[in-house]
């Protein structure tokens, strides 16, 4: 894989390719798109399925992407990208990138089939899942990537039920099980790491996939200035990990020797307000099991 000239926060291109959008103040999803577009540059074809990011940037007749961009139907981000990639090849275009920005619902639930097909064909596309851990655009419903215990409108917190009953799907493993050329997890809490991974994906000759943690102040009930700090805390307490999968090998980009208490992370967020100590211990148990598996397998 060809190494790009190293991009850092100081030499990022000044051009804003995702600008003037109507996302909520402090939206982690919009920060993800802005940073990714800076690395990919203007010669990019963008696909955004139904989700917050298309709702806030394709409000006719405005268009907040500074390049070609298309709003696709909800389940077919990857299929739409494959079509664009095939057309670009047929037209003998050179020096272009095809990228898609799907939410957690649009990736782990409704978009999974098209994504799996694209990885199988090894189409040269970059699939980005910005994970805000629920269906935010339609008013916070539970998705396969909503974590255990989180309150959403379809996993309410009351006497009978305490938020989501099941665990967050292990999307990274589902993707790497395809034997994809390049896959990584990232977080808006670690912008330099995120930029490095986007640059690798851009250089990749086959399908690449990035799973990016992008907190949503509106859906998580956290202050609007804490998007980045809460994303960092998720990594520090071990509930999110920064990893890569390349040429069949796993790599941890950050391996915390000690985790900060899960309770500190949980207690700051309104969506977990109802959880009791036992439930927080259950989250801790799941976290530890994940890390045992990571250390054994990777």
């Amino acid at each position: 894989m060809a190494e790009n000239k190293k991009m850092t926060l100081n030499n990022l291109p000044e051009e804003e390719l995702f600008f003037g959008h109507k996302a909520c103040p402090g939206c982690g999803g919009s920060l993800t798109l802005r940073l990714v577009m800076k690395v990919l540059g203007p010669n990019t074809f963008v696909v955004v399925p139904a989700n917050c990011m298309s709702a806030v940037s394709f409000y006719y007749p405005a268009m907040n992407f500074g390049c070609n961009a298309l709003a696709s139907a909800f389940p077919c981000t990857a299929a739409t990208m494959s079509g664009i990639e095939a057309a670009a090849r047929a037209k003998k275009l050179e020096d272009y990138t095809v990228v898609g920005f799907a939410g957690d619902g649009g990736t782990a639930d409704i978009g999974l089939q098209a994504l799996s097909g694209a990885i199988d064909r090894n189409d040269r596309i970059i699939y980005i899942c910005y994970d805000n851990e629920a269906y935010m655009n339609t008013g916070v419903q539970e998705s396969g990537l909503t974590p255990f215990g989180a309150k959403t409108t379809t996993s309410p917190a009351g006497k009978v039920q305490h938020g989501k009953l099941t665990h967050k799907k292990n999307l990274f493993d589902i993707i790497t099980a395809h034997g994809i050329p390049y896959a990584a997890t990232a977080s808006v809490g670690y912008p330099q790491d995120l930029i490095n991974k986007v640059a690798k994906a851009k250089a990749c000759q086959g399908t690449s996939f990035l799973h990016i943690m992008a907190p949503c102040p509106t859906g998580w009930s956290v202050p609007i200035d804490s998007t980045v700090s809460v994303a960092k805390e998720a990594v520090e307490c071990g509930l999110w990990y920064l990893a890569e999968y390349e040429n069949g090998e796993y790599k941890l980009n950050k391996d915390p020797k000690e985790f900060t208490p899960v309770g500190d992370y949980i207690r700051k967020q309104g969506r977990f307000k109802h959880l009791n100590e036992d439930e927080i211990r259950e989250i801790e148990r799941q976290r530890d099991a994940t890390w045992v598996r990571i250390h054994e397998k990777w």
Binding site: P61, A62, M63, G66, A69
Partner: peptide, 8 residues
């Protein structure tokens, strides 16, 4: 819509 069109 044209790329980069802002209306407000």
């Amino acid at each position: 819509a044209q790329a980069g069109v802002l209306i407000d």
